[in-house]
Each structure stands twice: as structure tokens, then as C-alpha cells.
């Protein structure tokens, strides 16, 4: 069973390597804090497509969908609602 913890873990291990990662919350703004940048978003998307069996269009790569872990979770599970 997948939940947003797997996204949190991925972001902490892959996109926040070398930074203090102890307190990443699902509501933290990932864009304002620079956790997700132009390349980071592409790496994250590859991960999401693989792990959530979703296909993400370029048009969906807007900040609103990736601002927080909660937003990412809502975005990748939107088809299930």
C-alpha cells in the first residue's frame, strides 16, 4: 500500500541529499525552499511515473501540483478520487 510517506522518503533521500532533512513535513513548501528545482522536478516525475503507474504530461508540470508533498500526493492519486 502506497502513501505519501514514500514520496517524502524519496524527496529526502534524492532531492535533499546533504541537507538537514530531519523535519520535512507534508505541508512544507518544496518550491519556495528550493527543494524542488527545474531538474529536481524531472527526477521526481520519473520516480512518480514509475512508482504510481501514472503518466504525467508536460502541461501538468505546474508549481501548484508540486508545491507540497500533500499536493503531489493529491496530484498522483487524482484519478482514484
Amino acid at each position: 500500500m502506497k502513501d505519501n510517506e514514500i514520496i517524502r522518503q524519496f524527496i529526502m533521500s534524492e532531492l535533499m541529499r546533504g541537507k538537514n532533512v530531519s523535519d520535512l513535513k507534508v505541508t512544507d513548501n518544496l518550491i519556495e525552499t528550493g527543494v524542488i528545482d527545474s531538474l529536481g522536478i524531472q527526477i521526481l516525475i520519473s520516480f512518480l511515473e514509475k512508482n504510481f503507474s501514472v503518466s504525467i504530461a508536460d502541461e501538468d508540470l505546474i508549481p501548484d501540483n508540486f508545491e507540497t508533498i500533500d499536493a503531489i500526493w493529491a496530484f498522483v492519486t487524482r484519478g482514484e478520487q
Partner: peptide, 13 residues
């Protein structure tokens, strides 16, 4: 072109 803030997505695409 696109929404405000969509520049990075457009550039990457």
C-alpha cells in the same frame, strides 16, 4: 503562453 509560473515546465518540455 501557459499560466503564470509555467515557464520552467515550458522550458523543460
Amino acid at each position: 503562453l501557459g499560466n503564470e509560473g509555467a515557464g520552467a515546465a515550458i522550458f523543460n518540455s
